[in-house]
Amino acid sequence: MSGHAAPKKKVSDMKRLWGMSIDLDKCTGCGACQVACSQENNMPIFDDDSDLPKRVVFLDLMKVTNENDKDAKFGEVKVAYLPKMCMQCAGNDPENPHPPCVSVCPVVATDVGDDGVVSQIWSRCIGCRYCQASCPYEARVFHWWKPRYEGSFQEGLNPDVSVSSRGAVVKCTFCSHIWKRERDRMIAKGITDINAVQYTPACVSSCPTGAMKFGDLKDPQSPVYEEKLRRDPRAVRLVHSIDALRDTNPAEYERRMKIKDFPNPKVWYLTSNEWLREKLSGFKKS
């Protein structure tokens, strides 16, 4: 049972449920999303970014290959690029969605918002790193060093995102500060309906090929309507092998959903490559 007192009854008027879909066949691996994310969220710059566990990025652009590079023959190696950020996952219970990180946080530094986005408050984090251990996607990063911004970077920091200190866990929040900014703009226009606010995270707006799409999972008009994505044969969710059972064995699917709290990520990957789908979902058909 989760340690924090989440309100059982939702008091907010928020009806949106933000989600994302990434078409990996369209992704060229240019890395614009990673740059845009780092700039938007005040990511520090370190001398040696090759130290992967100590690198601080919200959005990690991963290179995925089908075989071990050394063993494969020429022409058999297939490569795909995988933009991987926080999947904003939620448990099986839609009334009380708590992802693994929220359940283990001892200081309520991380919480689920009304729009389904898993928030993280850097300043509240005490650096116990339980959430990092519980995260199925390794989406959370820990500040091992004090963030440094060299030269004119200090002046270019985004004032909407607080700068983390050393010893705090940080993560992607679907750029929820942009939502707040857009809400201010809408209210200034006189539109006070909270559901009228639409926004685009930095990574999605920077994607040159339109591979990343962002929107409301519940809205049939949005490009990421969840019911449509569920029926899409190209859609796959990261290490979420339970999805494969939904169509083939519904009874078993129901049984497993009852006994185990699956993360249910809100980021969908689309690909027609069978090897990539197997690799992402962790489920082999054979």
């Binding site: 008091v11 907010s12 009304d114 928030s119």
Partner: peptide, 12 residues
Amino acid sequence: LKISNACTVCHD
């Protein structure tokens, strides 16, 4: 006022 008290409402 029955406004949401979720952390993301004010924190970033």
